[in-house]
């Protein structure tokens, strides 16, 4: 597994990227409490599609906004998962690192797509890494926030869980079709 912070340093053109990402996160406009910038965007995510505006406003303060530079990892393979990511802008590659340091690309995630949703269920290690292809903005939703939502606002929590189950079911179905559809 490559280490982005120092690998980027080896590429002369990218030495400032991790630093930019760090300061970018510090000085990004603080979005919390009553300021709801992401409500409209969250509505586009299939997991939150059945939430009404009032419910989305309650959900919005639980969302973390992160900025990544090209080459930065959103998460890495084998690390315990704690959050799901929704891509707001930019592109993310899902890659599996090989033994010789080469990466096998599995998919590319576009804006409005989401990834790492299994981390909302448990903290089993990530099965692949997610790497920003370009400057990317992502929204992160933390598992423990979902668990707390299930306790304090069961109506919102159960809607999210139901949509999450549907999405995972659809992905399983698609996976089965890919596996067995070709052989028929």
């Amino acid at each position: 597994m490559t280490n982005f912070t120092y690998d980027m340093g080896k590429d002369n053109t990218d030495t400032t990227k991790p630093l930019n990402a760090f300061w970018g996160n510090i000085f990004s406009r603080f979005k919390g409490g009553g300021n709801i910038p992401n409500v409209e965007f969250l509505k586009l995510c299939p997991i939150f599609q059945h939430l009404n505006n009032r419910e989305l406003k309650k959900l919005s303060p639980l969302i973390y906004e992160r900025k990544y530079q090209a080459g930065e990892f959103l998460f890495e393979k084998e690390q315990p998962g704690t959050a799901m990511f929704i891509i707001k802008s930019g592109h993310v590659k899902i890659v599996v690192p090989g033994h010789n340091g080469e990466e096998t690309e599995l998919a590319t995630i576009h804006p409005e797509d989401f990834l790492g949703e299994l981390a909302l269920l448990d903290d089993t290690p990530r099965s692949a890494s997610a790497k920003a292809v370009e400057k990317t903005e992502a929204l992160a939703f933390f598992r423990e926030d979902l668990n707390e939502l299930l306790e304090t606002n069961p109506a919102i929590g159960s809607k999210i869980m139901k949509d999450l189950a549907i999405v995972i079911g659809q992905r399983l179905k698609a996976c089965n079709e890919q596996l067995y559809g070709g052989s028929e």
Binding site: G32, G33, Y64, D123
Partner: peptide, 26 residues
Amino acid sequence: DNGEIKRFFVSLVPNRYFEVSLAVFD
């Protein structure tokens, strides 16, 4: 406080430590 303090401190954390910081906070 509706998580603003936690969000502020998490916003200071570099991306590499984002998920681990959430887990530690929790």
